[in-house]
Simulated scan of single mutants.
Amino acid sequence: MGADELAFWLRARTVGGTIIIELHGELDMLAQGELGPRIHALVCREATEAILDLRAVTFLDAGGIRLLLAVRDQVARRGGSLRLIRGAPRIAQVLRIVRLDTAFTMLDALPRTLAEGADADLGIRPSV
């Protein structure tokens, strides 16, 4: 990875009334600062139902956990619900260690009805 590339990015799309946000790379304090406002904007302009896909997350620390909790709270304030698609075992282990594994509705994969179609692709890669 070059010096001007970030270690994280996201891709978002809507299906029906659900926004699906795929998170990629390292979710740390830097990602929280960069991705947090972008996710906030997406959740505010899109549907109240949200899914965060963690399958491509390679690292999760306190900054990433704060990001997940902020998204959960933001969606809840809008009257919606947030679901997480499980990531690698080490990501699930971090959530278990901090006792947040039960604070989210966890999925093993994207539900078939959502995987089959997308209304809009809102792909976003943060720039440096």
Results as ranks from 00 to 15, higher is better:
E26H: 07
L27T: 08
D28Y: 08
D28V: 05
D28C: 04
M29W: 10
M29L: 12
L30F: 00
A31I: 05
A31K: 03
A31Q: 09
G33H: 12
G33T: 11
E34G: 01
E34H: 06
E34P: 01
G36T: 02
G36M: 00
G36D: 05
P37T: 12
R38G: 08
R38A: 15
R38W: 02
I39K: 08
H40A: 13
H40R: 12
H40G: 13
A41K: 08
L42N: 13
L42H: 13
V43E: 08
V43N: 05
V43W: 02
C44L: 10
C44E: 15
E46N: 10
E46S: 13
E46D: 14
A47V: 01
T48E: 10
E49S: 11
E49W: 00
A50N: 01
A50R: 00
I51E: 15
L52F: 08
L52T: 06
L52I: 06
L52M: 07
L54V: 09
L54D: 11
L54Y: 07
R55V: 13
R55H: 09
A56E: 04
A56S: 07
F59N: 09
D61E: 11
G63F: 10
G63P: 12
G64F: 05
I65L: 10
I65T: 09
R66L: 06
R66V: 03
L68Q: 07
L68S: 06
L68T: 09
L69K: 01
L69G: 10
A70K: 04
A70S: 13
V71R: 05
R72V: 14
D73C: 11
D73E: 15
D73T: 14
D73A: 14
Q74K: 11
Q74W: 06
V75K: 07
V75G: 13
A76C: 05
A76Y: 02
R78L: 14
R78K: 15
R78E: 15
R78V: 12
R78W: 14
G80F: 04
G80C: 07
R83P: 05
R83C: 14
L84V: 13
I85W: 04
R86D: 10
G87W: 01
G87V: 04
G87N: 04
G87L: 03
A88P: 00
